[in-house]
Simulated scan of single mutants.
Amino acid sequence: MLLLIAKRLAAVVVILLALTAVLFLLQHISPADPVKTMLGPGSSQELVAQTRRELGLDDPISVQYVHYVGHLLHGDLGTSYRTRRPVGTDLATFLPATLELTLFALVLALVLAIALAVATTLNWPGAGVFRLVLLVGAAMPAFLLAIGGIILFYKQLGWLPATGRTDILDAPAGPTGLLTVDSILHARPDVFVDALRHLLLPGLAIAIGPAVSIGRVLRSSLVTTQRTDYTRTARAKGLTEVQVMRRHVLRNSVGPALSMTGLQVGLMFAGVLVVELIFAWPGLGQYTAQSIPVGDYPAIAGVMLLLGGAYVVINTVVDLLQAAADPRIEA
């Protein structure tokens, strides 16, 4: 197990270095001049040249990359051309909203996936209808689900809000930045309920697609495991199907589902950035959308590096969880 952890950590370092190299090269092949973007279109050539020297942009590209990685290791992601603040500060401001939405959508996707897999495997009443609804939802892109959800649940039924994180003006702003957590820490059940209501529509729009993908893989694994000899032995001992599922089948079936979950996380990140724009969610999606038109490359690169790093780390954790669930995995 220790050897596996060492291999995965080494792979994480290599992948992150490759990611930084790609982002660095994209910045240099971009037609936009970062200095002119920073100083404005009316700046003089002398000021532009002086600023380029001060920023080290006249150095050889290899030297610039070493400096770039060195700054990253010290937590320096550069300064946003648009906000004039350190990108790290901006990310710390916008990240909690995106993190809360992503975690909520991930939990929702896992719950729906398990429900889909177990219900269809055990042929529970209504499982066919539940499966059909999820399949129809998964056939639509996240942005279309988001728009449809707003039309149905906000415009027509008036059940759920359509924009923002909360309607409560004095909602707690800390210490975690996650409204659901902060509302519990401040004993504010009204804020907690309101935050959940705002999370439901965007969370469902993001979660349904991954839920079906994970659920299908889990169901296939469950069906295969149910046909094994030790499962038949458990039934012969008089255990009910639910007991067999809980004690013998689920743990031995989660490996493929965990792999699919890791793959779906990347799609969820992409869905989050799009869905945030539709729901006016004050997270990284809004920050990125505001940065792209003005060529704010440090901000864009900071978001991409953060999400790419998170994706790599999550898949590494998934690999380790698979090894914990199945000791036969050694590499």
Rank of each mutant, 00 (worst) to 15 (best):
R235N: 13
V87P: 08
I151N: 10
V22H: 00
V35S: 02
T224R: 14
A97L: 05
E54T: 07
L26W: 08
P41N: 00
L307C: 10
E54Q: 11
A323W: 04
A97C: 10
V35A: 04
I208D: 01
T121M: 05
A119H: 00
S43P: 04
L222G: 00
L196I: 15
L185V: 04
G177L: 00
A270M: 10
I184Q: 08
G209W: 12
A92C: 03
P41T: 05
P256A: 06
E100S: 09
T83H: 10
F104N: 04
P293H: 07
L321H: 02
F269L: 14
L57P: 07
F94S: 10
V294Y: 05
R219D: 13
N252C: 07
P298I: 03
A18G: 13
A139I: 02
Q27N: 13
G148T: 02
T89Y: 14
L47F: 11
P175L: 03
P172Q: 03
W159M: 02
A138N: 09
H186E: 09
H71P: 04
L267V: 15
L134A: 11
E276A: 00
G215W: 00
L99M: 08
A11D: 12
T93A: 15
A18V: 15
Q27M: 15
G209A: 15
S183C: 07
Y297F: 15
L106N: 04
A6G: 12
R216Q: 14
Y68E: 06
D326I: 04
I314Y: 11
V48Q: 04
I5M: 15
L321T: 07
L250D: 05
D194V: 01
I278E: 06
V318C: 02
A139F: 03
Y230A: 05
T102G: 14
A10D: 08
Q290K: 12
V35G: 08
H71K: 15
G78I: 09
Y81T: 07
L152Y: 04
D194R: 01
E330P: 01
L99G: 11
P202Y: 04
Y311C: 13
A146M: 05
V136N: 05
G174M: 09
F269R: 01
T225R: 01
I206E: 01
V63S: 13
L157R: 08
V111P: 08
G174Q: 03
P293K: 00
Q64H: 09
G75I: 00
T224W: 08
A162K: 04
A301G: 05
L263K: 02
T180P: 12
L199K: 00
L185H: 00
L263F: 11
G40S: 07
L99E: 10
A119G: 09
V107Y: 02
T288Q: 13
L284M: 13
A11C: 11
R219H: 14
G164N: 02
D190F: 01
L72V: 11
V13A: 14
R216W: 07
A127V: 06
V66W: 10
V294L: 10
T261G: 08
A92E: 13
R131V: 11
L152A: 07
A325S: 14
R82E: 11
V312S: 01
P189Q: 01
H71D: 15
A115I: 11
R131P: 10
S183V: 05
R188Q: 07
N315G: 06
T98V: 07
A331L: 15
A92Q: 11
Q27R: 12
L169G: 09
G238K: 00
L103H: 03
G255K: 09
L103A: 13
